[in-house]
């Protein structure tokens, strides 16, 4: 047995910056696990998830939520979903596998992403300068999720509220992404 323990640290030190009409903050207390779906088991997996948490498999670029709203599933590819859920421990993979209780393949990705929330009435104005996809209220509705590029780097964007968006970028790029967002804030406000 090792005589040390790995401690979870957030990618951006829990940063939270407030501007007029927009807040930029790190999302903490969330885990992210990839759930790979074997082609022959889509139906079996969906019925297991429905039974355990009231979850359905989302349509492409959409999300679904569990009955208690603690687990959100994102569908960015046909054969996999990402589980975004409230959990802070070191064993997110085991935790979600037990909660979903479905015969899929789980891979913990929590520590590989930096998660930044951009919220407030001006959030869309800030994001439309760095995000190439259409974020209009009706096109990118609440619950929509998409993988695209921002600042030339692959980024996932998820709309988790009327005026609230979560951006996921690779952890090593987190500080640069934060900078890009704040430059956009300064240009817009």
């Amino acid at each position: 047995m090792s005589d040390y323990e790995l401690v979870v640290e957030s990618a951006l030190d829990g940063v939270e910056h407030e501007f007029e009409g927009v807040t930029v903050s790190e999302v903490i207390g969330k885990s992210l696990v990839m759930v790979a779906l074997p082609r022959s088991k889509f139906e079996e997996i969906e019925s297991s998830m429905t039974k355990s948490c009231g979850l359905l498999l989302p349509e492409m670029e959409q999300s679904t939520q569990s009955k208690d709203s603690a687990i959100t599933l994102w569908r960015l590819q046909k054969n996999q979903v990402l589980a975004y859920f409230s959990y802070e421990g070191n064993d997110a993979e085991v935790n979600i596998a037990n909660r979903l209780n479905a015969p899929a393949y789980y891979t913990d990705q929590s520590d590989t992403w930096a998660m930044i929330r951009v919220s407030g009435p001006r959030s869309r104005d800030v994001l439309e300068r760095i995000c190439p996809i259409d974020l209009s209220k009706n096109v990118f509705s609440v619950g929509s999720v998409s993988r695209t590029i921002m600042e030339h780097i692959g980024t996932i964007i998820y709309r988790d509220g009327e005026n609230s968006y979560v951006l996921l970028t690779m952890r090593s790029f987190g500080v640069s992404m934060l900078h890009a967002i704040e430059v956009s804030v300064k240009n817009v406000l």
Binding site: E61, P132, I133, D134, S146, T148
Partner: peptide, 10 residues
């Protein structure tokens, strides 16, 4: 076909 209009940069 699945995701709608996307920039060719992607």
């Amino acid at each position: 076909p699945l995701l709608g209009p996307r920039d060719s940069e992607e």
